[in-house]
Design a protein around this nucleic acid. Structure first.
Lengths: 147, 147
DNA sequence: CCCAATCGGTTTCATTTTGAAACCCCTGCA
DNA sequence: TGCAGGGGTTTCAAAATGAAACCGATTGGG
């Protein structure tokens, strides 16, 4: 479910990139979602993995729940956060950020974690394509602005 | 060229997602890169399109240049910023964020800008795949941590 | 049953970041 | 020569962040 904009003040209301950045483009939200990809996660698990301050984590979890990206599991006494469908759908964006980081944010030979499938093989590199299947880049595309 | 880490204090040094977020995961950097995708852009063009404060824009442009994502064009009196290869390579990540926004950050029927190829056809949806070509999701992948 | 530990926070307060506005220098040009 | 941009920096107030203390509800052990 999308926020309607009545309660928000978007940086650039017509741009999907800007809206996404408004929703998850801070220091912690995407890392919270990244960790939640591994399964239901408790408050203290997030704390331990991320080292984020309690009040900030509390606030981010609340925001992510409000935006329909996380939900808190009703079952279980030690209640946990898990991704909604919208949250799981951030997988592609996180993979894209991961792949860029692998290519450009590490020195040659510097080790880093990898994303692999159930057989342990690395995930293929994402490649934007046109409807016909031909690769596209920033140079061969344009943003059609809406009036 | 990648930052080596000597001058930085990464949130999660081994995670490419976290490093990418450290580099461009603030309120403005990705939007600056998004705009730069359309071609060389001047300081005041960024200002006009983004409405960002001068000092913040100044700081972000410097950071992006330092990180090898933008360079300032040597030619031209009215000097401009343009993407390096590493900057252009953020295209995929921006497309992924855009597509998530299109799916989840707009109410039904609410208009938004679109990314189209040179023939005006929308770009196809990104879909992570294993090496064999089979689709993968957060549930069918795992992060192989590095020791 | 009572005590202590753990979980999941909130509150408080200092530090950092952000943003608006004023100011500044340089270049082109009328 | 003067003045209108462009491309910033400086200053200062406001907002976000983070560390630490605090707190109530569970839970597990003696």
């Amino acid at each position: 479910m999308a926020a309607t904009g009545a309660d928000r003040d978007w940086t650039d209301p017509a741009c999907p990139v800007a809206r996404t950045v408004d929703l998850v483009g801070d220091r912690w939200s995407l890392l919270i979602v990244r960790d939640a990809m591994e399964g239901p996660t408790s408050f203290t698990d997030f704390r331990r993995r991320l080292g984020v301050a309690r009040n900030i984590l509390s606030d981010r979890l609340r925001r992510l729940v409000d935006h329909g990206i996380l939900r808190t599991s009703p079952s279980g006494r030690r209640h946990v956060y898990e991704l909604t469908e919208a949250g799981k759908d951030l997988f592609t964006a996180i993979v894209a950020l991961r792949q860029w980081g692998e290519r450009h944010a590490f020195a040659d030979g510097e080790p880093h974690s990898r994303l692999v499938d159930t057989e342990g093989r690395p995930v293929a590199e994402l490649r934007p394509q046109g409807q016909g299947g031909a690769p596209v880049t920033g140079e061969t595309t344009r943003v059609e602005r809406v009036e």
